[in-house]
């Protein structure tokens, strides 16, 4: 049994997705993981999940720089999905951008829990799990 039942990765970079998945496996982070390669795909997928009466992933790793619909646009649209408990979803921004403007912008979204710089390594997920334990005893 992993720490979380369902996790979600939204990233267009296959190497990045590979890395996150690998770290998850090593830390026994999650039972199940779903991957979308851009914001639009994720939005469509998650909406479909809701329509089918499925539970949303409890944690989402979101990349910023993606084609079609980037991370910011996803955030803007995600809160607009009707009749959901999107606030129960924990979102982590996962980006290679060290641009302070991006980090400041991330703070303006209340549903964003934290901003993690790529690459995501084991220790990142370990720390993340212990932090969430404190927050959600």
């Amino acid at each position: 049994m992993g720490k979380f039942k369902n996790s979600c990765i939204i990233d267009d970079d296959p190497i990045s997705v590979f890395g996150i998945k690998r770290s998850m496996k090593e830390t026994n982070f999650t039972d199940d993981v779903v991957v979308y390669t851009n914001g639009q795909e994720a939005l469509d997928g998650l909406t479909k999940m809701l329509n089918e009466g499925k539970k949303l992933p409890s944690i989402i790793f979101l990349d910023l720089n993606m084609p079609i619909m980037d991370g910011w646009e996803f955030l803007d649209d995600f809160i607009k999905i009707p009749n959901t408990n999107t606030e129960k979803v924990i979102i982590f921004i996962v980006s290679s951008s060290m641009d302070p403007r991006d980090m400041i912008k991330a703070q303006s979204y209340s549903m964003v829990n934290n901003y993690i710089l790529k690459p995501i390594l084991r220790k990142d997920l370990v720390r993340l799990m212990s932090e969430l334990d404190i927050k959600q005893p």
Partner: peptide
């Protein structure tokens, strides 16, 4: 993004 991938 590429350099972080490479290091990872």
């Amino acid at each position: 993004s590429h350099s972080s991938n490479l290091s990872m």
